[in-house]
Computed example of a mutant assay.
Amino acid sequence: MSTGGGREAQLKHTGLRPGWTTGACATAATTAAYTALLTGGFPDPVTITLPKGQTPSFALTAESLTPDAAMAAVTKDAGDDPDVTHGAVIRSTVRLLPPGSGVVFRAGEGVGTVTLPGLPLEVGEPAVNPVPRQLMREHVARVAAEHGAPGDVEITLSIDHGAEIARSTWNPRIGILGGLSVLGTTGIVVPYSCSAWIDSIRRGVDVARAGGLTHVAGCTGSTSERTVTGVYDLPEIALLDMGDFAGAVLKYLRRHPVDRLTICGGFAKLSKLAAGHLDLHSARSQVDKPFLAALARETGATTSLAAEIETANTGLAALRLCEAASVPLGDAVATRARDEALAVLRGAPVTVDVLAIDRAGTIVGRSAPKGP
């Protein structure tokens, strides 16, 4: 399979192999199934055209044909991206509809259904995002034109074990129940771009806003979620699984604000935000101990304590040194992280506060709430 030169050239220096979105796989399966329904034969491999012009080919995993319907399946290859849907079998069953019916999408087993407002799909619709829908419509129209057919079809998408896989995604929290979403804007999965995670953050904000919530929390993990719900008693849809992507939360809220944002995470991660990093992953940003030492000096640390902080093994070790000396480094980090968040929000009408925690979930630093 070929992605086309541009994306391959972009990734060549990393040595990482790109993959395919669920939307691209669903389009390939749909194209093969509809072709078989009209001609009696499945193209294998089946070639599709992605939104940016690449023309990958996909081998079929399974196929079946009856007088009324055709089913084709493609196994998703996410390349070198740690995607939970890598290896999932995506099936498309196509049936003819009366002329004038258009293209109708149905959720089969393992594909979720939208149950909450705020997503780019109406409540009750199958969780097949707008770009994959358009891509499938275009390919149906292309096949129909080649064979003189009207192009009115029902497409039922299913994903083997999709309901089970979906439990490890955001879908249940944002009201997509029963399975996975069919996603993708370019058709290509860029390794470690974490585009699906960032898209889930955005959808989480959308669902919270549509539900009338005025307070959301960006959390770095399950421990921070437990801490923030203990402090503020927020409903589950208010909890944004931010992970390491503080920048994704802040930039989206800049365009789609809510009244209040609480950021809750481990002290070390939040010290990176305090130092101006928006991606908190250990591979892409490090705890800056000289920065912590300078911050500690601003809050009363002695020269000798600051020197110990600079040589501490970890950020948490630096915090413990300050706690022993009654220097409020945790509060200073939380306050600086809040101010960095406000700078990214650029005057958006969002009040921010920050909770820094240790590994047990104990609050070790806290900022006052502050707005623009």
Rank of each mutant, 00 (worst) to 15 (best):
A9C: 12
A9T: 14
L11H: 04
T14K: 03
G15S: 08
R17Y: 06
P18L: 13
P18T: 15
G19R: 03
G19K: 04
W20D: 06
W20S: 09
T21E: 01
G23N: 04
A24T: 03
C25R: 10
A26G: 00
T27E: 14
T27S: 13
T27K: 10
T30A: 12
T31C: 07
A32Q: 05
A32E: 00
A32V: 04
A33Q: 05
A36D: 02
A36N: 00
L37W: 00
L37F: 08
L37Q: 07
L38C: 11
P43L: 11
V46A: 03
T47V: 09
I48D: 00
T49R: 10
L50T: 00
K52Q: 14
Q54F: 13
Q54K: 11
T55P: 04
P56F: 00
P56S: 03
S57M: 04
S57C: 04
A59D: 13
L60R: 02
L60M: 06
A62C: 05
E63G: 15
E63Y: 14
E63N: 15
S64K: 12
S64N: 15
L65Q: 05
D68L: 14
D68E: 15
M71V: 15
A72C: 01
V74N: 00
T75L: 03
T75M: 03
K76S: 09
D77I: 09
A78G: 11
D80T: 05
D80S: 10
D81G: 01
D83C: 08
V84K: 11
T85M: 04
H86G: 10
H86S: 13
H86D: 14
H86Y: 01
G87Y: 01
G87W: 01
A88R: 02
A88M: 07
V89I: 13
I90Q: 00
R91C: 15
S92D: 09
T93R: 13
R95P: 03
R95F: 08
R95L: 12
L96C: 14
L96V: 15
L96T: 15
L96K: 15
L96R: 14
P98S: 12
P98I: 11
P99I: 11
S101R: 11
G102R: 00
G102N: 02
V103N: 00
V104T: 12
R106L: 12
R106A: 11
E109I: 12
E109W: 09
E109R: 13
G110V: 06
V111D: 04
V111Y: 01
T113Y: 07
T113D: 10
V114R: 01
L116A: 12
P117D: 02
P117M: 00
G118V: 03
G118A: 00
L119A: 05
P120L: 03
E122C: 11
E122S: 14
E122L: 14
G124Y: 00
G124W: 01
P126E: 02
P126N: 07
A127E: 06
V128S: 04
N129G: 10
N129P: 05
P130Y: 08
P132L: 09
P132K: 07
R133M: 07
R133E: 09
Q134Y: 12
L135H: 06
R137C: 13
R137P: 04
R137M: 13
H139R: 02
V140C: 07
V140Y: 01
A141Y: 07
A141N: 11
A141P: 09
R142T: 14
E146C: 13
H147L: 10
G148P: 04
G148T: 06
A149E: 09
G151D: 02
G151H: 05
E154D: 09
I155Q: 05
I155D: 09
I155S: 08
I155A: 04
